[in-house]
Design a protein around this nucleic acid. Structure first.
Lengths: 233, 233
DNA sequence: AAGTGGTCTAGACCACTCC
DNA sequence: GAGTGGTCTAGACCACTTG
C-alpha cells in the first residue's frame, strides 16, 4: 500500500476526465465508486484532489464537472479590471464591506500609522466571467485619504481612483504569497467547497516617496487562479 | 450545520496549539477525538487543515507537533543558497536525478529548441535547516551547455556555476505560481504527508539577450514555505 | 420527491517509530 | 509489542438543486 488507493483511483479518473470535454458532467460519486470498486470515501478523496488541482468542479445538488483551465493573473501593481480585460475575460466586483475600523498593531505597522488610528476597509469579491475567483480586502489610512469614502465608487477600480482622482503615484510594492485553507465564511463568499487550498496574497503598496499607500489581503481560489511574476536579476 | 463540525473543532484546537510552544507534542488523535467528543475522522480533518496551514506537523509513528513559522523565500533570480543564508538558515541539497533526456513539445518551446533535442535534467531536493522544503527540477539545452555535466558539482549552486564558470548573464525571467496536490512520489521525497497542498513554480530564465537559459519546475511544501515578490509599477 | 454532493460515525487494518 | 499517524470500508443523515 505504498501508493494509496485513492491515488490509483485519481490517476485512472484523470484518464476519464481527459476523455471528456470542458464542462462535461461526471457520473455521480456513488456510481463512480461502484465502477472503480472502492468506497465512496476513497472516491471522494480522489475527486477532492482533482478539484484542488483545478481539473474538476463540484456543485452541490447538481454534480461534478470538468473544469476550465486556470486563469493566470499578473503579480504586479496593475488594475484588476484591466489585467482581466487584457486576457479577454469579463471582470466584476461585489462589495462585501466598506467601513472604518481602528488599526491593530500589525496593520498599523504596515500602513505606517499608530495603533488604533482609523483605517478604511474595503472588502470585495472579485469575479471573472461571472465566477467568483478572489476575496480582496484593502486597508487605507483615513488620515491620509479622508475623502475616500465620498470619492470612491466601491464597485469601480480603487487603483484608478487613487491615481486619477487622489493624485497618488505608485512606487515599489511588496507581495507575500502562501497557501492556506479558507474559512467557511471565505469559502461561502467564493462559492468554493470547504477545505479548498487557496492562494493568500499580502500586499503593501508604497508611493514614489516610499510612503505606504495600502495594505491588501487577497484570497484567491487555488483551483481557479495562478499568478505570473516577472523576475529581474 | 452551516458551519462544519470539523471547523468548530479546528478553531478550538487552534486555541490549544497557541497555548503550546513550538515543537510541543499534541495528544494522540484518538485521545483528542474523545476529548472533543467527535469521531476520529472529524478530528483528523481539523488536524489536516492545520497541517496545511502550517500550524501543525505530523510524523507517522511519533505524533503531531506544533510547527515552526513558514520560511519566506524571495521570488527572484538569486541563488537558493544565498537567499537562505541571508535569513540565517542552513541550506542543503540532495541530488535525485542528473541525466539527459529528449525535450517534449512544451519543454522545447520554453527552451527555444526543437522537440526531441537533448536536455540536461537536474532534479534536487532542497533543504532548510535539515528539513526538506522543495523539489527543484531544472532543464537546460545540452546544445547550449555541452560541458555542464563535466563542470557542475550537482550539489553546489547551479546559478553560480552558470554565471561564474560558463559566462551566462541572467536577464529577465518569468515565474508562474499555483497550488497543486503533490504526487505520492513528490510527497515522499519531501517527507510530507499525502494530499498536502503545494506551491508549484514554473520559471523560465533568459539571458540579457533574451535567449532562454533554463526551465525550472519547483515544487515547494505549502505548509513550510511562502514567497515574497517585489512589485514595480 | 428524487438525486446530487457534503458531513459524520464507528470500526478496522496498515505502516512506521520507539522501547 | 505497544503506540502513533495513515488509509479504507460501510453506512447514515444533511443540504442543496432540479423536476
Amino acid at each position: 500500500m505504498s501508493v494509496p488507493l485513492h491515488y490509483v483511483v485519481k490517476t485512472r479518473l484523470v484518464e476519464v476526465v481527459e476523455g471528456l470535454g470542458e464542462g462535461a458532467a461526471l457520473p455521480p460519486e456513488r456510481v463512480l465508486a461502484k465502477e472503480f470498486g472502492v468506497s465512496r470515501w476513497t472516491m471522494r478523496q480522489a475527486i477532492r484532489e482533482l478539484i484542488a488541482d483545478g481539473r474538476l468542479r463540484a456543485r452541490q445538488g447538481q454534480g461534478t464537472f470538468v473544469a476550465t483551465p486556470k486563469l493566470v493573473q499578473p503579480l504586479a501593481l496593475v488594475s484588476y479590471t484591466e489585467a482581466l480585460r487584457a486576457q479577454g475575460h469579463t471582470p466584476a466586483r461585489e462589495v462585501v464591506e466598506f467601513d472604518e475600523l481602528p488599526a491593530d498593531a500589525v496593520l498599523a505597522d504596515r500602513l505606517g500609522i499608530a495603533e488604533g488610528e482609523p483605517v478604511h476597509r474595503l472588502e470585495r469579491v472579485l469575479f471573472a466571467d461571472g465566477q467568483p475567483i478572489g476575496l480582496e480586502t484593502t486597508y487605507l489610512a483615513v488620515e491620509r485619504f479622508p475623502t475616500l469614502k465620498a470619492v470612491l465608487d466601491p464597485t469601480g477600480s480603487l487603483y484608478r481612483c487613487l491615481t486619477d482622482q487622489l493624485g497618488v503615484r505608485f512606487g515599489e510594492g511588496e507581495e507575500l504569497v502562501e497557501t492556506v485553507i479558507a474559512t467557511p465564511r471565505e469559502a461561502e463568499l467564493l462559492k468554493a467547497t470547504q477545505s479548498l487550498p487557496m492562494l493568500l496574497l499580502h500586499r503593501t503598496s508604497r508611493d514614489t516617496a516610499g510612503r505606504p499607500i495600502e495594505a491588501v489581503r487577497s484570497l484567491y481560489r487555488g483551483d481557479r487562479v495562478g499568478f505570473r511574476a516577472t523576475l529581474r536579476p
